[in-house]
Amino acid sequence: MRWIVLAVVGAYLLVPLLAMLEFSTRGVGSTRTLEAWKAIGTFPELLSGIAVSLELAVLTVAGMLCLLVPTMVWVHLRLPGVRRTMEFLCLLPLTIPAIVLVVGLSPVFKLLSYFFGDTALVLAFVFVVLVLPYAYRSIDAGLRAVDIETLSEAALGLGASWWGVLFRIVIPSIRGALLSAAVLSIALVMGEYTIASLLNYNTLQVVLYQVGLRNAAVSVAVSLAALIFGFVLLFVVSSAGSRRRGAAREESTLAPLEGGLQL
């Protein structure tokens, strides 16, 4: 039964990808060709779209973490009564249609363009808002999984400052949740089309659409490459946490030997 379920789910996920691969390598007649893949480099706007989306992902993740983590930790520890309100505010973007967001944010973006110039990176401000529901859920689950109140009190009693508690205890304790929040944010930013398109910024998805109008095979090739790149990126990000812990364990195991040598 388990294998049947796995096979069905695997097929559901893989068939579209295989179809994309088949379409992007389709040649004349029944031949196969990598022309569409080779042509990716001939669309400079594609490369710049990829770069912009990656930069936006980095800025969004950084903005989200800087905004959300200290606030949520503070609310968990000091203002538990505000938790419901914060949850409501963070989930609000889920209920607002993109077009409403764009209309509402237009004046804000005029101001942002005035200060930061005409760059697509200002989209990071709205993307931070967009990723709030997903990031909030993930970080909240992480904070609930560990007894953050007791841990912070223990650290304070041992002489740590509030920032020490945050950076030495809380963040390492919820690293998995932070990685999940980052992964979700990256996925959302890399796939976002509506807002960027309505505000006339050329992110990867917008450029893909434009290229697709001129050359469908290249557009599908880039989409597939972007998906594979996304998978690899998410795998690297999510495996970073476990590797760091493994390294820490190894260092700790070696410590007695070092201590012995020093003595």
Binding site: D147, T150, L151, A154, A155, G157, I169
Partner: peptide
């Protein structure tokens, strides 16, 4: 120095 009722070791 304080020892809490709940387990309070830093998990990381």
């Amino acid at each position: 120095g304080m020892v809490h009722q709940a387990y309070s070791l830093f998990p990381n």
